[in-house]
Design a protein around this nucleic acid. Sequence first.
DNA 1: AACGATTGTGCAATCCTTTGCAGGCACACT
DNA 2: AGTGTGCCTGCAAAGGATTGCACAATCGTT
Lengths: 347, 347
Amino acid sequence: MTEKRKLTLLDIANELNISVSTVSRALKSHPDIAEETIRMVKEFAEKHNYVPNALAVNFRKNKTYNIGLIVPELVHHFFSTVISGAIDCAKKSGYNVLVSQSNDKLEDEVVACKTMLASSVDGLLISISNETVEGEHIKAFIDEGKPVIQFDKISDLLDTPKVIVDDFEGAYKAVSHLIDQGYKKIAHIRGRLEVKNANERAKGYKKALEDRGLEFDPDWVKVCTLINEQEGYDFAKDLLNSKNPPDAIFCITDLVALGVLKYLKEISVQIPKEMGVFGFSNWKLAEIVNPGLSSVDQHGYQMGETAAKLLITFLENKNEFINDTLELKTDLVIRGSSLRFENHANQ
Amino acid sequence: MTEKRKLTLLDIANELNISVSTVSRALKSHPDIAEETIRMVKEFAEKHNYVPNALAVNFRKNKTYNIGLIVPELVHHFFSTVISGAIDCAKKSGYNVLVSQSNDKLEDEVVACKTMLASSVDGLLISISNETVEGEHIKAFIDEGKPVIQFDKISDLLDTPKVIVDDFEGAYKAVSHLIDQGYKKIAHIRGRLEVKNANERAKGYKKALEDRGLEFDPDWVKVCTLINEQEGYDFAKDLLNSKNPPDAIFCITDLVALGVLKYLKEISVQIPKEMGVFGFSNWKLAEIVNPGLSSVDQHGYQMGETAAKLLITFLENKNEFINDTLELKTDLVIRGSSLRFENHANQ
DNA sequence: AACGATTGTGCAATCCTTTGCAGGCACACT
DNA sequence: AGTGTGCCTGCAAAGGATTGCACAATCGTT
């Protein structure tokens, strides 16, 4: 690890007997500089492998070309897809992405924000934790003139552009599909009442039932708090053993649906014949289980790309910037767990 | 987004009628500064919410407190676990992590390295792509005096510390377990011949057979190139339909094992009774499939932590630094797919 | 011949913090 | 009173790139 002293503009200037400013301008082909000089400087720089000192440039320009990205959980198929999209998009514009996670804890989120703010990112992409309400730590970015974009899990209390999935529409489509497949008594295992995405999905679920004139039983709506497999399992048990058992279950997320599937298999209920199951998020697991789990694809990659592009557009001061909420459309991925009318149960 | 001009040391100095240097020192409780002055400065700074200009500090100190992290694939359970560990560890020491992915392509890796080098990370954690051989782009970091740590997928041509999993031992333990379970004809679906991890696992496999005096048939070793589910499926078919079919298959990774399981189910071979299956990496899917897939846990989180800690130790100039290869031990996670002697097939 | 326009280059300030060194001041001791 | 010793504070340079402005040189025009 021999630390070569890096070549600076001054070195080049001395070597070529011209001034630092001329070198600087020559390297960016400034029109004031003579062709000949430009050629000479560039050749020299090339030959000696000159790389501008990024730290100095950043300092001067008051820009880092880094953007922050905070998600509740990194080890999570959906979020890693989003990150992937954001990174790929940022890379195209020469930005790097600083990634951090909040573990869905406010405290961790605050720390992550502080470190990022201190280390001077140019802007922030964030999907807030379940515990985040006021978001003073996020406002701190805005106060410093650093743009923030919220995505997926958002708070309306923060006045920033947002990129979200049209949860309502996704749920509506999923439930409509179940109805199309002949299911008549559709339950919903939903997420927490305070979480916006969960509410939107619940609304979509209800609207679909209404629009098609189907029965709605409040007992068919179960509220998850942890949103894990076990809850799916437990609620499936509840539902199946109730007075008015449903014939299909629409779940807030695939993990919950997995628990449902597990219980149904245990008591040998046939899927999709006797009971339909629909998930949300289209995790990897949805294609692995047997029968395949129908799910709503949220296009995480696209969400990451969109959010990053929005942020970068702002940073580059293109005035096309829109302080608005972008809703990405979802797509249904139909697999065996909900496909009663065609013979694809093993897809 | 009103860009408040940020408070500088000069502002404070003017306000308090002392010099910039005194303010600077007072803020870090330098022993040269009088208690009274320190109190006054800190109070003022606190009240007016002074935050040092990170860009200026970085420039001055020639340090960014950012470290780069490049993986072949971000949307991948193992790697996201590693990233998670690295980020959590870095956060503790006040470092941020810049994440990028190579998509297992040399070209992308080179670009990622360049952007990171340009944006001045203090050091790099990298798991190289399958295509990387020489690694000039990685040497560029070392040439600039920036430490590099390789992890998981490494190249011995690059003289850097490395954090890897003891693949040999993991494979050895897995195969030994299969032997303990009474399997006698154990096949191995392995990874590419040029990839070190794959070779180590293959060695461990072979050594376990030798040590227990079991038959070894070269036809039982199949070489994956893409390392996906389909290959697992296809090779399982090959193996099962060969002259000398095995009674257990040890797979290079869980995804391949999944394909194997799929084929076995299709032809109604009973797992684990008639055939044992063992994976590697302990992905989420291993616990989801039925029967559960036995696998080798690589402790990705720990690997990320270890690599990050190593790098940061170096950066902080603690001379405890060791330019060496750290091998993390693996653990077997035994599930239904290999458990013939106990009645846990549904675990 | 003198002046203006044009082209090419350099000077010097700026961004903000850190830090080696110098110096002022007060007190104590000879 | 003079010298020495600490203690506290300030000066100024450094770090590398950028950029407004000034200036020098060249050429063309009247």
